[in-house]
Computed example of a mutant assay.
Amino acid sequence: MKAIYFLVALLALAFSFASAYDPSPLQDFCVAINDTKNGVFVNGKFCKDPKLANANDFFFSGLNKPGNTSNPVGSKVTAVTVEQILGLNTLGISLARIDFAPKGLNPPHTHPRGTEILVVEEGTLYVGFVTSNPENRLFTKVLNKGDVFVFPIGLIHFQLNVGYGNAVAFAGLSSQNPGVITIANAVFGSNPPISPEVLTKAFQVDKKIIDYLQKQFWSDNN
């Protein structure tokens, strides 16, 4: 009987790991549709009849165009997820172009549903990520054109342009919709705001500092 309980527990654990990432497709493709009138989402998206799919369902144009970096952080992320290419639905992959003005920053953020692999197309970037508690170990590297760096799923990471000109990087992510949580925006720019009592104790600072930070305009570069 104990062996049966152990087997059930093991299967439950295996299923929990399997369901933590995009599921494997059960057909060649499942082009998403957004215009359904009734029903519930199927893993985020309904599927178009495969017979009605066409080449445009798997196509996106525009990553040759620089993003607008005229914002407080000096960077722009142009994402290509299932929202931009409906044919990415169930394929477990997406892409992004990141443009940086001189000294531009892609602020500390996480992707809760995907690992990121970044390749520098132009310029010089200082990049890094921080491991989880309790170590909170920082891994950093200066990347030049052609260099590649990996940011593990869910970990806080960043990229800073340390060159003298503009910089461009492309990132592949292991999810059709990896999501993004920009740390400063989430903590100090949430709607409604997080209680100052929580934040003053969490950051061990005076309430005036928290009030100041919550009144700032937290720029979104996505």
Rank of each mutant, 00 (worst) to 15 (best):
D28H: 02
L7N: 01
F170C: 01
G114D: 12
D147P: 10
I93P: 00
N64D: 15
P25I: 01
I209N: 04
I194G: 00
N222F: 11
V198L: 14
Q176T: 05
G62Y: 12
L105S: 11
A18C: 10
P107K: 01
D49G: 05
L118E: 13
T182F: 11
G114I: 01
R113K: 13
N222K: 03
P196F: 08
F41I: 05
V187G: 01
V187R: 02
A32F: 03
Q216F: 02
F15C: 13
G163Y: 09
P178E: 09
K37W: 01
N71F: 13
A96K: 01
A79T: 02
P196S: 07
K145E: 15
N68P: 07
K48F: 01
S190Q: 11
H109K: 05
P193S: 14
P102L: 07
T182P: 12
P192T: 04
N221P: 01
N166Y: 07
L95A: 04
Q214I: 08
A9S: 15
N56E: 15
V142S: 12
F170P: 04
G163R: 03
C47G: 14
V142G: 02
F170W: 10
D28A: 06
N64Q: 14
I117P: 04
K201N: 15
A3V: 06
H109P: 05
